[in-house]
């Protein structure tokens, strides 16, 4: 699971964001995108030296200003669950594909762009039956 995908599953959970300038933002993650831009709710902004506190009802962070984020521990359990589920699903799909002998949902990358009207597919089928 990629980091940014993991971040999407942290929605509605409290996170801590530290910006490159040392400021920290504590708040609930509302949304994020593939540039790591974030929107947060109920934010407490703390200045770099830790003396100034600011309460913001909502907040937008441009991704390139982020240094790091601290996420809730439970998120990793969730990620683990999801990857296991994915693996299971993939295994099941594979079984179905190899069990049934029809080749319909199998992509054949070898013949892409051939100019003989896909005449090769017959030979492939024979191979699979052996």
């Amino acid at each position: 699971m990629l980091p940014l995908y993991l971040l999407t599953s942290a929605k509605n959970q409290p996170i801590l964001v530290e910006l490159k300038n040392g400021e920290t933002l504590n708040g609930e993650l509302v949304n994020c995108d593939s540039w790591m831009n974030l929107t947060l709710n109920n934010v407490v902004q703390v200045s770099e030296n830790g003396t100034n506190f600011l309460k913001l009802p909502e907040c937008y962070v441009r991704g390139n200003h982020i240094k790091y984020m601290r996420l809730p521990e439970e998120l990793m359990d969730y990620a683990k669950e999801q990857t296991l589920l994915n693996l299971e699903q993939r295994n099941r799909n594979q079984k179905r594909r190899t069990g049934g002998n029809f080749n319909n949902n199998r992509r054949n990358y070898n013949n892409q762009g051939n100019r003989n009207g896909g005449h090769n597919y017959r030979r492939n089928n024979n191979n699979n039956n052996k």
Binding site: K67, Y68, R70, L71, P72, E73, M76
Partner: peptide, 11 residues
Amino acid sequence: YRGVFMIRGEN
């Protein structure tokens, strides 16, 4: 102890 970190690669 800090827990789970997501670090932006630039840093």
